[in-house]
Design a protein around this nucleic acid. Structure first.
Lengths: 111, 111
DNA sequence: CAGTATCCGAACTGATACTG
DNA sequence: CAGTATCAGTTCGGATACTG
């Protein structure tokens, strides 16, 4: 058993899923690992995610310490999202996910 | 863009999430990688998953080619679940997930 | 620009009972 | 043993409109 922030998990995999599971978080980590991005840049990168879901996911990741939200007090507003060191610690997983795609569906990748 | 089984994905990570995302699939892959298991053994291993959800997840993984369902025609029934080679191809990801837990919450693991 | 608010249907999850 | 069936509650996800 693993205890983390007062919750119990059967195995490490379960905990990992809790932190980066869901439809969007792994992909957000992937993009943010390449480049710090502003809110609307993320919106444009992912035509399929709504602003609502994007805000929600980013907030959860910020709460969990994976993402740093930097707000510039200016008009028009400017907010930048980047990975914390903790967020970067998931990169081996994200890279493994990407590598899996390269290995197993490489023939179907179109640039 | 990646095309896989008539669906399009922005990046490999997105496709990986589609195949092994969700709350249970990664954990099921983890357990089945260690040992072929019968339905009720899985039920006992995961007190938090209901039979309904377990059936549903296993069916999806079978449909996607990750899991092999072997039914013995006998009474009482016996069904064994194991990983296909395709299912095993996700092991680098699952192992990375587990390793993350070992590295980052090791202090909180109780056997 | 970077979000909120509201509404709504779909999907997930759980409890319980039942079946070949 | 290995599931299904049913009901109900919660969360997810998307469309649209609005705000500081």
């Amino acid at each position: 058993m693993i205890t983390y922030r007062d919750k119990e998990y059967r195995c490490a995999v379960e905990l990992t899923i809790e932190l980066i599971g869901g439809k969007w978080k792994a992909i957000l980590l992937w993009e943010l690992s390449k480049k710090t991005l502003r809110f609307n840049e993320l919106v444009r990168l992912f035509p399929n995610i709504t602003r609502k879901m994007l805000t929600q996911q980013l907030k959860e990741m910020e709460r969990d310490g994976l993402v740093l939200r930097k707000e510039y007090n200016q008009i028009p507003p400017k907010v930048e999202y980047s990975l914390t060191n903790f967020g970067k610690s998931f990169m081996p997983i994200i890279l493994a996910m990407n590598q899996w795609g390269v290995d197993y569906v490489a023939g179907n990748i179109k640039e």
